[in-house]
């Protein structure tokens, strides 16, 4: 029997090889075939998960909510200390200096990252901005969002905070952060599908113990993680409830 594994498409391109290394590590530890399927965009990945093709997923909070509530997935672990926060940024030369300067008809650059956009829209809402009075441009990656700001095509960009940090220093020097969310409760999670629920605890323990040996530490490093931490059912349910409050 083989597993199908996928990763939320919002990971940094620098981590691509890391996920393949991680997949090899998992196969050796678990003694099963695991196929890593990476999708180009959120929509393609969602189609695959809805078609019950996926058994293991490192999911963004938005998709994790759907997978747990609608598809019977179970949470296992989350990366230690990594939270999903959104950054609202402008070009360094922009005349916008605070959130109070934002007005209707604002041009907003964003990706299709669902939870980041949800948090980003929540931040913009306090300036009386919403889907009805802004112009959105959707890009395939955060570097393209940054480029749109630098070219002056959009006024503000919505970034995953971690992805903003991963932009090159040259790009970041030409941008300015207006606001960073401080939610502190929303994170990516590694989930297991219902077909393999009986192996949840075993895999969970393998992942939690990963940082206890040199090999495991090296694999974690290639993902940019320090260690995995356990996520229990109630923590996941709490996060989903919280996300639910932000979706309105």
């Amino acid at each position: 029997m083989s597993y199908m594994f996928t990763v939320s498409p919002d990971f940094s391109p620098d981590r691509l090889s890391g996920w393949y290394i991680f997949n090899t590590w998992m196969q050796r530890q678990m003694g099963v075939d695991i196929h890593l399927e990476l999708y180009d965009d959120f929509c393609a990945q969602r189609v695959a998960t809805y078609s019950n093709k996926i058994d293991l997923i490192y999911a963004n909070p938005f998709d994790a909510a759907m997978l747990v509530r609608e598809k019977g997935f179970l949470p296992m672990v989350k990366p230690e200390g990594l939270l999903d926060e959104a950054v609202i940024a402008v070009s360094a030369e922009s005349s916008i200096s605070t959130m109070d300067d934002l007005t209707a008809k604002l041009k907003v650059a964003m990706t299709e990252d669902p939870d980041v956009n949800m948090i980003g829209m929540m931040l913009l809402e306090s300036a009386d901005l919403n889907d009805d009075n802004i112009e959105k441009s959707i890009f395939d990656s955060y570097i393209l969002v940054a480029k749109s700001l630098l070219r002056g095509n959009d006024d503000v960009g919505v970034f995953l905070a971690g992805s903003y940090d991963d932009l090159s220093n040259m790009v970041k020097k030409q941008l300015r952060i207006l606001l960073t969310s401080e939610i502190g409760e929303i994170h990516h999670s590694f989930l297991i599908g219902p077909k393999f629920a009986d192996r949840r605890e075993e895999i969970q323990n393998l992942l939690i113990g990963m940082n206890e040996n040199e090999k495991g530490q090296g694999v974690l490093e290639s993902l940019g993680f320090k260690s995995w931490e356990k996520v229990d059912d109630e923590e996941m349910e709490f996060m989903i409830d919280l996300m639910d409050t932000l979706s309105v």
Binding site: M122, E125, S126, A127, D128, E237, F238, D241, L242, D244, T245, L246, V248
Partner: peptide, 27 residues
């Protein structure tokens, strides 16, 4: 605050409530 309160449904029953407050607009 702009408050949103939702019932926490666990095993089909309301187990409690979560309240999340965010910054309201001046308007």
């Amino acid at each position: 605050v702009k408050a949103t309160v939702i019932p926490n449904i666990r095993n089909g029953q309301v187990a409690g409530y979560t309240s999340v407050r965010r910054k309201p607009s001046a308007t």
